[in-house]
Design a protein around this nucleic acid. Sequence first.
DNA 1: TTCAATAGTTCATAAATTCAGAACTAATGA
DNA 2: TCATTAGTTCTGAATTTATGAACTATTGAA
Lengths: 130, 130
Amino acid sequence: MRPLFHPSVEDVPVEAILHALSDPVRVAIFAEIVGQNCSHNCVAFSNVNQKSIPKSTLSQHFKILREAGLIRGERRGVEMYNTSRCAEIDKRFPGLIGAIVTAHNIQLADGARTTKAIKRKSVKRIAKNR
Amino acid sequence: MRPLFHPSVEDVPVEAILHALSDPVRVAIFAEIVGQNCSHNCVAFSNVNQKSIPKSTLSQHFKILREAGLIRGERRGVEMYNTSRCAEIDKRFPGLIGAIVTAHNIQLADGARTTKAIKRKSVKRIAKNR
DNA sequence: TTCAATAGTTCATAAATTCAGAACTAATGA
DNA sequence: TCATTAGTTCTGAATTTATGAACTATTGAA
């Protein structure tokens, strides 16, 4: 299996970072990894947000986080060890990751109200039904 | 013409904000509006990034920024007056907007290197060709 | 060794989003 | 009333994303 691709932080545009974190499943995964400041394998997340997510989908999510320079994935035996690359990103874009993770946590804490609208789709629906 | 929809900031999930700003044209527009801390009509942006963007597309972009609670659009005669809603958002998600706009500006300042990769698409291509 | 089990990737295609031209609406000023 | 300007909406095409199925890699046991 060929080694995973990890871009150097200078090659990652902010847009890619924002895009990677604009998905509810991916911010959740990333916030976990940052929070624990340690590893986590793919399967550990198979029910983020009370939903069971197919592993092909999860695999994609991790790939997007990796290619946005947000995490580093390292094979450890049969499973994957993921760590955040916060420190590196923070050098280039100070405060960015912190602010996003904080915002995510604030939203989590807000609870019920926002959990209903956590999918992008919902926002659009709200907007539409005005 | 029916009045524009502006969500209350509490109803906007972070994901929607990040998604809105994960597009190079939209961050550029938004950073401009924030930077000038004042208005700007649609057409003023018709060649953001040296590209001329069709007005139907621009209209969509503004709508997405509006529905993410990032800007307020107000009709002034025949044209649109757009202002940022930074202050409101900052109350709920402190530092978020600032960090993103700063990151955007850092990237702009970096110049040539990143401008080539400014489209999400490019990042993926870079990733693919490994 | 060989085999089964586990973790994750890749591939193919269906579903959802986004883009952009064309037709439309609204306000302004001649 | 008409032409002009600014912006929206509609619609089909192009692009992205999601996911089941098939595949690859590693481990541990027989």
